[in-house]
Computed example of a mutant assay.
Amino acid sequence: MVTGNGNGNHQSYQAPTDQLMRQVAAGEDWAFAQLYLSTQHAVYALLLSLVKNPATAEDLMQDTYLSIRQSVGTYIPQGKPMAWIFTIAKNLAYQELRRLSKQGAENFADHEDASGEDNISQAIDNIVLRSALTILEERERKIVLLHVAAGMKFVEIASLTETPLGTVLSSYHRAMRKLQKSVREGAVQ
């Protein structure tokens, strides 16, 4: 049902380093490209888990990397560049959710990409993705998407989200049981 990297078209997650962040801050285009390539799946998975809309997640991902490029000089090396990147992405997602909420767009599923094509469809079957976005709790969604779509290890997810490893594992297994039950019962159209 849910497989690791789908057809294998994307690399597994590689955490960025403080050295890479210094090179990005120095204006090295190759370093920014490497940062993007090594983090894009994790950032997209996080954003998708928050906004539940592939098109919005893609837009916010672009905004995230623009913001990173503009503010990388303020990054303080502490060995946690991914946490800094996730903070930027989360802040942008929450701003967008507040903006949409003010417009009365509370049901984000209504704004789904009609084509059904998105960056994550190679890693997760559309049925499971749609189910994950609707029936899973936010923590479960985030863990499943970071593990399955971004290829992150559970220990990396635990560190990044500052959640105990046991909680990450139990949340993942609970989420998988929910998804399997949903698929068996045909609850997802």
Rank of each mutant, 00 (worst) to 15 (best):
V2L: 09
V2W: 00
T3P: 11
T3I: 08
N5D: 09
N5W: 04
N5S: 12
N7F: 07
H10K: 09
S12C: 04
S12Q: 05
S12H: 04
Y13W: 13
Q14W: 06
P16C: 00
T17C: 00
D18S: 08
Q19Y: 01
R22D: 05
Q23G: 00
Q23Y: 03
A26P: 12
E28D: 11
W30Y: 03
W30I: 05
F32S: 07
F32D: 12
A33D: 15
Q40Y: 09
Q40F: 06
H41V: 02
A42N: 11
Y44E: 12
A45G: 15
L46D: 13
L46W: 06
L47A: 10
L47Y: 06
L50Y: 11
P54E: 08
T56D: 06
T56G: 02
T56I: 15
T56N: 02
A57G: 06
E58Y: 10
D59G: 14
M61T: 14
M61W: 05
Q62Y: 15
Q62A: 11
D63H: 06
D63K: 10
Q70D: 15
G73N: 13
T74H: 10
G79N: 04
K80C: 04
P81S: 01
P81Q: 04
P81T: 10
P81E: 01
A83M: 11
W84F: 09
I85W: 03
I85L: 14
F86E: 08
T87E: 04
I88R: 12
L92T: 11
Y94D: 11
Y94T: 14
E96N: 11
E96P: 01
E96G: 01
R98H: 12
K102G: 06
K102M: 06
Q103D: 02
Q103M: 06
Q103A: 09
G104C: 07
A105T: 09
N107D: 14
A109E: 07
A109M: 06
D113A: 13
S115A: 12
E117S: 13
E117H: 10
N119G: 14
A123K: 07
I124S: 05
N126W: 01
N126P: 15
I127R: 09
V128G: 03
V128T: 09
L129W: 01
L133P: 04
T134V: 11
I135T: 11
L136T: 03
L136F: 00
E138G: 02
R139N: 07
E140S: 08
E140I: 13
R141D: 03
K142C: 14
V144A: 12
V148M: 05
V148W: 03
A150R: 03
G151P: 04
G151A: 03
K153I: 00
E156K: 00
A158R: 01
A158T: 06
A158K: 01
S159K: 09
L160D: 01
T161M: 12
L165N: 07
G166C: 01
T167D: 09
V168Q: 07
H173T: 13
A175R: 02
M176V: 13
R177S: 11
R177E: 10
K178N: 01
L179N: 03
E185A: 09
G186E: 08
V188T: 05
Q189G: 07
Q189C: 01
